[in-house]
Structure formats: structure tokens, C-alpha cells
């Protein structure tokens, strides 16, 4: 464990908590893409299947359980409890265009053609694009509530911090995983324009308005 990975995981945890609290407190999921949350639930389910087979540490197990439970709780809040506030009209990204290519790619490029490894690889590829429906929704509505912006900033930062973690582990432990690194770079790059808007607008107290 290193400081980059720890802050990355905490940033990830913060993002998930921000979203849950936002939906729960405002009793509304307006401005939130249910599709992205479904994709995240799929990502954690396919990645953390090893929960039942391998024990790495209490921290690892605890965090995986939190991520899985929180992602399903978020999906439940969006599609069941507060579904009246779900923005059907704007949450229209075709997620099959993300799921299928990720699955095909995980069959073609992986470290080992075994079920758990393929599912892990699929979850890595899918996670790198899972935020697209949310970013698409923000671009369609042209704005995002500041709490949603904080959620996106924390979520985008987590994988960015993981990139630093992988650089550190390459030099400190001389190990690396190209699949995770390449997908992590793609994932972080997708947030770049949002990061720019977040720093130049939201941090100055303005609302996140995308140029129409």
C-alpha cells in the first residue's frame, strides 16, 4: 500500500458516499445518470468476485464490500425509491456500446484466458468508460449541481491517483499491469475537460455550466 493508492481509494469512497448522501438527502436523483451507476455496479460485481476465493487484507475485503453495497444501494435509490425523479429523457446513452466492446476486448486482450481473469479484465475496460453516460447527461442538460461536480471530481481523481500509484509501484516494486494502466489513462483522460471546468468554475463558486 502506498499514499497514492490510499488517497485514491479514499477519494473513490468519498465519491460514492457523496452520491449516496446527495440522493438520500435531496430525495432526488435529478442530474444523475442511472446508467453509469448500473455500469459501476456491474464493474464491482465482475471485479470483486474474488472476494469469496482469495483473502488479501481486512482493508481490501472491507472496501470491496462497501463498493459493492454502495453501488447497488445507489442503483436501488435511482431506479426504485426515487425513480419518479430519474431523468429518463436525458439519460439516453447507449450502454450496450460500452458493454459489448469491453467484453469482446477482454476476450482478446487479457493476461490469462480464465473466467475470473476475463471478468476482471472486462471490469477494468468497462470502468474506464462507465462515466460516459454521466458526462453525456451533464452535457445534455448543460449544467450540473455543485454536489454532482464534487462527486465527479472525487471519482475522476481516484483513478488519476491510481496512475501515480502504478508509477510508484513500477519504480518501488518493479511491477506493473499494462491493462490496468492503459485503461486507467483512458478513464482519467475522459475527465480532463470536466476537471478544467471544475477548477475554473465550480471552485470559484460558479455553477458548472457547459458551453451550450
Amino acid at each position: 500500500m502506498n499514499i497514492f493508492r490510499l488517497t485514491g481509494d479514499l477519494s473513490h469512497l468519498l465519491a460514492i458516499i457523496i452520491l449516496l448522501v446527495k440522493i438520500w438527502k435531496t430525495r432526488s436523483c435529478a442530474g444523475i445518470s442511472g446508467k453509469s451507476q448500473l455500469l459501476f455496479a456491474l464493474v464491482y460485481t465482475t471485479r470483486y468476485l474474488d472476494l469469496v476465493s482469495t483473502y488479501i487484507s481486512a482493508y481490501n475485503t472491507f472496501m470491496k464490500l462497501i463498493f459493492i453495497c454502495a453501488s447497488y444501494a445507489t442503483v436501488y435509490l435511482i431506479y426504485m425509491k426515487f425513480k419518479a425523479t430519474y431523468d429518463h429523457n436525458h439519460d439516453t446513452f447507449r450502454v450496450e456500446f460500452l458493454i459489448l466492446p469491453s467484453f469482446v476486448l477482454s476476450l482478446l486482450i487479457n493476461h490469462d484466458f480464465a473466467v475470473l481473469e476475463i471478468l476482471w479484465t472486462f471490469s477494468i475496460y468497462l470502468e474506464s468508460v462507465a462515466i460516459l453516460p454521466q458526462l453525456f447527461l451533464v452535457s445534455k442538460t448543460g449544467e450540473a449541481e455543485s454536489i454532482t461536480s464534487h462527486y465527479l471530481f472525487a471519482l475522476g481523481s481516484y483513478r488519476g491517483l491510481y496512475l501515480l500509484n502504478w508509477i510508484y509501484r513500477y519504480y518501488a516494486e518493479s511491477h506493473y499491469d499494462l491493462i490496468a494502466i492503459v485503461a486507467g489513462v483512458v478513464q482519467t483522460v475522459l475527465y480532463c475537460d470536466f476537471f478544467y471546468l471544475y477548477v475554473t468554475k465550480v471552485l470559484k463558486g460558479k455553477k458548472l455550466q457547459l458551453p451550450a
Binding site: R5, D9, H12, D50, T54, I56, S57, N60, M63, K64, F67, H111, D112, E117, W120, Y162, N165, E173, H175, Y176, D177, L178, I179, A180
Partner: peptide, 10 residues
């Protein structure tokens, strides 16, 4: 192979 180690990450 390098992937076995990375599974200690979330």
C-alpha cells in the same frame, strides 16, 4: 506474470 500482483488493488 505481472497481473497476479495487481489483484491486491481495488
Amino acid at each position: 506474470c505481472e497481473s497476479m500482483l495487481v489483484k491486491d488493488e481495488l
